[in-house]
Design a binder for these strands. Structure first.
Length: 606
RNA sequence: GCACCCGUAGCUCAAUGGGAUAGAGCGUUGGCCUCCGGAGCCAAAGGCUGCGUGUUCGAAUCACGCCGGGUGCGCCA
């Protein structure tokens, strides 16, 4: 990031926290809060796991639940489908783990579900009945359809997600992409798990920056500020006043004065502010529409303007505030943090103040079980302080708040203070997708629509495929490359399987399918990948990590293409045909479901 | 200076509550369409998991200490 851009990003909003520390207490709280959610939720608990747990439990002094905790997946399917390591038993029984594994392997007889048991060193490896695996999995997908992967673990619970939150009077930059798509994906994931989700766009529509903007207009603007002004012009004004302030600090006082007028409800200031807000919102909405993102609530910082007085009063009543150098602060020294500044020397409110008021308001409004702030790592300290203050105020729900941290976006080749507009990136990507579609599928009737879906999907997936914590090195080539582990690859696989269904020209039937026909290595691998999907969705929610869904999808697509390469569907003997056709349909279904969770379209042709 | 985050193949990233031989994609090299979509598949090459010590039957994963990078640290958001 170069200097001019850095100057602009001084006022960028929302970010960070001690994610690792917070996630743990949060999880334990959740478990206490709801009796229905237990640790088992995060584990696979299908028929095979249960069968293994029972059969091993019968031969040991471990309970089925204890055995379940031990079950893992071998590194290679040739070793088995599930494994129970015997190290824990070895300590208990004071015998070598390999001997125990061998002993258990000999004692456990094959059953309908578990076709074979053998030991490999200290591991007790189970081979499942492939027919059962196929039947369990595909019946479930076919029956649940678009609901496959969802559950009701969140029924009756509310999650508030604060995401996107672009800054008014500034363009919707590429750096807002992360919070926007991560937040949206989490919103979809939680909703899929039955939670009531409140997605909030906490717009950066208040603060000293508007004082600067208004001061700039007064200096250089001509006539009245009206809504025909563009965001680009507003940005220019902002950059210009910013430079001016650097040269002449007195100008800053001018800006502060304007912000004070705004906070005190001065009609002229208020009117100009509204113009800026409306102009920006119009532009933001265009981007949200492209991304297919909506919010349950658009309550920016300004929304809390009339609430901060009471918030400050409560802080004071609880004896938490002190006055230091004219400002009202909460001393956090005992917790090794700098003070939380609640009110400025000149009585104006601050970002932190408004966040505090927002937290209180959201609690009283939603009584959430969780509140997630999807904000980049730069604001870690801010949220640490905020959560600590909530705790000091005696709010037990402070532990339900978590900062969903993501890394900064780097590697943007910005020329001289130019912010990269997200809209431009999306359009660029759409253009490339259009060329690709034109080349690959010139007769497609809805080429424009598909180009949109593929182009935008590429940008979204590029962001969501990696863990959110790492800095994201934005690379045009990577984002626009349609080959490899990309959004277009997933969409292509989906379209390819849709194509088989079209060409087959026969209804997919579930009744009478001979699942024993689905036993080749590539086929089983695909079925397993499909079976793993629901768990990935739950893990994504547990870790606030959409990339877990992304990777599950890549795995399914990878296995799907390998299956496709090796096994013909159309034109093979009828019993096998029907079995494979069902698998194709289930594959298509789960890919579509997963893409939807990520906020990516799944066109049937491309 | 203090705090937090991140160091895994040339590059971007994985590695299922610490487990078996650390895996993908991009890039490089070489193969595969008379056959359901080649935006695909197969194969090769590429690693002291930043360094060290410790805990453990077992460490990329946990602890401590270094080194390197990023970010933050009182009236910006």
């Amino acid at each position: 990031m170069n200097d001019s851009l850095r100057a602009i990003s001084i006022t960028e909003n929302r970010n960070e926290d001690r994610w690792a520390e917070l996630s743990l207490p949060l999880r334990s709280v959740i478990m206490v809060v709801s009796n229905t959610v237990t640790r088992e939720v995060w584990w696979m608990s299908d028929a095979f796991v249960t069968a293994i747990a029972n059969v091993v439990s019968a031969q040991t002094d471990l309970s089925p639940a204890e055995v379940e905790e031990l079950i893992e997946t071998p590194p290679s399917s040739e070793m088995g489908d599930y494994a129970v390591p015997c190290f824990a038993l070895a300590r208990k029984w004071r015998k070598p783990p390999a001997a125990i594994a061998a002993e258990l392997a000999a004692k456990i007889a094959p059953s309908e579900y578990l076709a074979k048991v053998e030991n490999a060193g200290p591991y007790l490896n189970f081979f499942v009945n492939k027919r059962c695996l196929a039947e369990e999995t595909l019946k479930r997908v076919a029956t649940e359809g678009a609901r496959y992967g969802t559950s009701n673990v969140g029924a009756g619970k509310t999650v508030v997600i604060d995401f996107s939150h672009p800054n008014i009077a500034k363009p919707f930059g590429i750096h807002h992409l992360r919070s926007t798509v991560i937040g949206n994906a989490l919103r979809n994931v939680y909703r899929a798990l039955g939670y009531h989700v409140v997605g909030i766009n906490h717009l950066g529509d208040w603060g000293t920056q508007f004082g600067k903007l208004l001061a700039a207009w007064q200096r250089w603007g001509t006539g009245e500020l009206t809504e025909d002004i563009s965001v680009a012009t507003l940005l220019q004004l902002y950059v210009r006043i910013h430079d001016e302030i650097e040269n002449d600090p007195a100008v800053e006082e001018e800006a502060r004065a304007w912000f004070r007028r705004l906070e005190q409800g001065d009609p002229e200031a208020r009117r100009m502010w509204e113009v800026c807000r409306n102009v920006s919102l119009k532009e933001f909405n265009r981007v949200y529409e492209m991304l297919g993102i909506t919010f349950e609530s658009v309550a920016g910082e300004s929304f809390y303007q009339d609430k901060i007085h009471d918030t400050l009063q409560r802080l004071q009543d609880k004896g938490l505030t002190t006055v230091s150098e004219g400002a009202t602060i909460v001393d956090l020294k005992p917790w090794g943090m700098p003070p939380f500044i609640a009110r400025r020397r000149d009585d104006a409110s601050l970002y932190a103040t408004r966040d505090l008021a927002a937290a209180e308001y959201r609690w009283s409004t939603y009584h959430f079980d969780k509140m997630l702030y999807v904000v980049d790592v730069a604001q870690s300290l801010h949220f640490q302080q905020l959560f600590k203050v909530l705790e000091l105020m005696g709010y037990e729900w402070h532990a339900r708040c978590a900062h969903v941290v993501f890394g900064r976006m780097l590697g943007l080749s910005t020329r001289e203070g130019k912010v990269i507009f997200l809209e431009d990136v999306l359009n660029h990507s759409i253009e490339l997708a259009r060329k690709m579609v034109e080349e690959k599928n010139p007769d497609l009737p809805n080429k424009d629509e598909v180009a949109q879906q593929v182009g935008i999907g590429a940008v979204i997936f590029a962001d969501l495929k990696r863990g959110r914590i790492k800095d994201y090195v934005f690379d045009w080539e990577e984002v626009l490359n349609p080959f490899g582990d990309t959004g277009p690859y997933l969409q292509y696989t989906h379209a390819r399987f849709c194509s088989i269904l079209r060409k087959a020209a026969q209804p997919v039937v579930m009744g009478g399918v001979d699942y024993a026909r689905l036993s080749e290595a590539e086929t089983v691998a695909l079925i397993k990948a499909i079976a793993a999907f629901p768990r990935a969705v739950q893990q994504a929610a547990r870790d606030y990590e959409p990339s877990i869904v992304s990777r599950a999808l890549l795995d399914i697509a990878d296995k799907a293409n390998k299956f496709y390469e090796k096994h013909q569907v159309i034109g093979v003997e009828e019993t096998t045909f029907h079995a494979r056709l069902l698998l194709v349909d289930c594959t298509r279904q789960v890919l579509a479901n997963g893409l939807r969770l990520l906020g990516i379209a799944a066109p049937e042709e491309m």
